[in-house]
Amino acid sequence: MIQLDNVSKSFEGTQVLKNINLTINQGEVVTLIGPSGAGKTTLLRLLNWLEVPDSGRITVGEVTIDASKYSKHDVRRLRGQSSMVFQHYNLFKNKTVLENVTESLVIVSKLKQKEAEEKAEALLKKVGMGDKLHDYPANLSGGQQQRVGIARALAVDPKVMLFDEPTSALDPEWVGEILHLIKQIAAQGMTMILVSHEMRFVRSVASRIIFLEHGELVEDSNPKDLFENSKSVRTQAFLQKLTYEEV
């Protein structure tokens, strides 16, 4: 479903991802954890081609791109496989809640306006935003904006959803409900990759956890093994730094 072959990426001379090889299967809920600067977010963004790898091959769904040779057309096909939920929501500020979701349906998926609105309304109801269809993002709380962000990402019928620290910009009061919503989507069998620092949530939602540090995959395991008997000293050191309550 998702495959990375020898993927490397550096920013201004600093290598953030070193020769990553990774395979993720359909239906898996994979969480990337690790200290800041480990390359988690970069890895996630590569899959949506928001970052361009220096070398290696990336496969998402039916599309494979080689960093050494690709066209704009390849990039669009790759992006069509996945969708992203952002840390800072990134809702289209000049569009209403409804328009944020219909935008890609009309412009990219070429649905008729009416069909797009019906689909968007259904999704927005599902995420609990059915009563705010005509509000602009500026008038929504962080939690509400992130619900719309999730509806927008669901609308493109992605094969895999990418969540980039979806709750870390939220006020604590909204974190629970967003995590609950993500869990619901996971329960419906959606393939997901998440970057998150909410360890308790990670443990309960993930089918697989990958610990990254200094741009390398240090440990790749199921939640129980990773949290309770990690084989890696580096993972143990990272987990020990987290407060007792978080683990």
């Binding site: 992006r79 992203m84 289209f92 609308a155």
Partner: peptide, 24 residues
């Protein structure tokens, strides 16, 4: 982030400019 959001739902650069970036 606005441009990235456009890309994430697979809009082209021109679509993003025209419908999201330029209006803002």
């Amino acid at each position: 982030g606005q441009l990235e959001a456009c890309y994430s739902v697979n809009m082209t650069r021109l679509q993003a400019l025209w419908r999201v970036i330029i209006p803002q």
